[in-house]
Design a protein around this nucleic acid. Structure first.
Lengths: 206, 206
DNA sequence: TTATTTTTGTACCAATCGGTACGAAACACA
DNA sequence: TGTGTTTCGTACCGATTGGTACAAAAATAA
């Protein structure tokens, strides 16, 4: 019988096996980029945190930009699914509030760097990082799209009045999300953000 | 008679006169830091934009961190006074709206880098930049204080109902300001931000 | 003129940057 | 025991980083 304690079968490939877990290494890289940003994170910072050396990094993840993209992908996959979930709430208004609450939890989580990687990863940076900046802006607009679609659905469903503007509303709540990230990065507490959320919900159409 | 075309008297100090205008040079440095952030701006970027060489930079402005602080000071002095002015509006509500409008103008100004230096100058960065980060967070809280004081005044003056929370309101509008900066930095237009502002004003206590 | 003072440009510093060449090491297979 | 294959660690690459030493240049004062 197979080893039941190990989830994956192991038809070991030829060659020397790698001595680190790429998944853990990627998570370590995520933390570094998260708290230092693309420019502020050096390869030495990264390899030190990941517990590997540069050739291993390059062989496994590519150059710094590729690594960053993989990190962003990991971030999106692990830190944002709560949004889709929240937006499944039968009430769009509740859904949005739950998105804001979840984001507030995330950007002030005591075990993670404060703020959102998609915001502080590369807001302003130098050199050939335009692609990075565009990537992050795209990912950010992803969550805005989520909100907009939910709001459009709410309008056709009657929860939002016909004169409401789902486009503007999704942009507004996205802006509040970005703002909360900046505030958290600057030291705002979860409680601080709660009062922001409560007020932001006042903008909901009467 | 004195030279009437020159504003300042000129009791030239001894030594070789400097060949550049420190004011213009500082403005050039401001632009570089504004669009590349602290980490992304190299001394080569700075000296190239300022039109001077490194020894002149060091003699006049100190090292990179000192230069950045002077740049931030310049930024605050030139880009934020519109806030005090706007908050002198007899209506606090109008004042806040004018602050948001002015900020939207500023962060999308076609001749300047998009976004706010106090936000994107050093949100996440590496090395010994903790002081820089704290400085910027402090400057940001400056505008929040402005809003809070105005709102407190509005409450004692009766424009805001007693049950309103000036603390929370100022934090909310500050958060919207930071969010608009991020959005502008990511490509949002002035028009986009206007719809955000209109919705943000809905949060004003009934 | 000479002396003094300050700025300028060049040339340079050690350290670090992102990125790689290369041989030893560790596995499967024969 | 090889042999093939892949990763590992070290040592290194040229370029760039932030920061300076130094002497020529440009001004005033004597």
């Amino acid at each position: 019988m197979g080893k039941v304690t190990k989830a994956k079968k192991k038809p070991l490939p030829p060659g020397r096996p790698r001595a680190f877990d790429p998944d853990r290494a990627l998570n370590a890289a995520l933390r570094v980029f998260w708290e230092k940003g693309y420019d502020g994170a050096s390869l030495s910072d990264l390899t030190a945190a990941m517990g590997i050396n540069k050739p291993s990094l390059y062989a496994t993840f590519g150059d710094k930009q590729e690594l960053f993209r993989k990190v962003v992908e990991r971030y999106v996959q692990t830190q944002t699914p709560f949004m889709q979930e929240a937006l499944e709430d039968p009430s769009a208004r509740n859904g949005i509030r739950r998105v804001l609450n979840g984001a507030a939890d995330s950007v002030t989580h005591p075990l993670n760097p404060h703020g959102c990687l998609l915001v502080q990863g590369a807001l302003a940076c130098g050199g050939e990082t335009d692609g990075i900046k565009r990537d992050l802006a795209e990912k950010r607009s992803g969550s805005e799209n989520l909100l907009r679609n939910r709001l459009l659905r709410a309008q056709t469903g009657g929860e939002l009045p016909p004169e409401a503007d789902p486009e503007a509303l999704s942009r507004f709540y996205s802006t509040v999300l970005r703002g909360m990230s900046v505030e958290a990065s600057g030291g705002a507490t979860r409680k601080d953000l709660q009062s922001v959320i409560d007020l932001a919900m006042n903008a909901w159409p009467a």
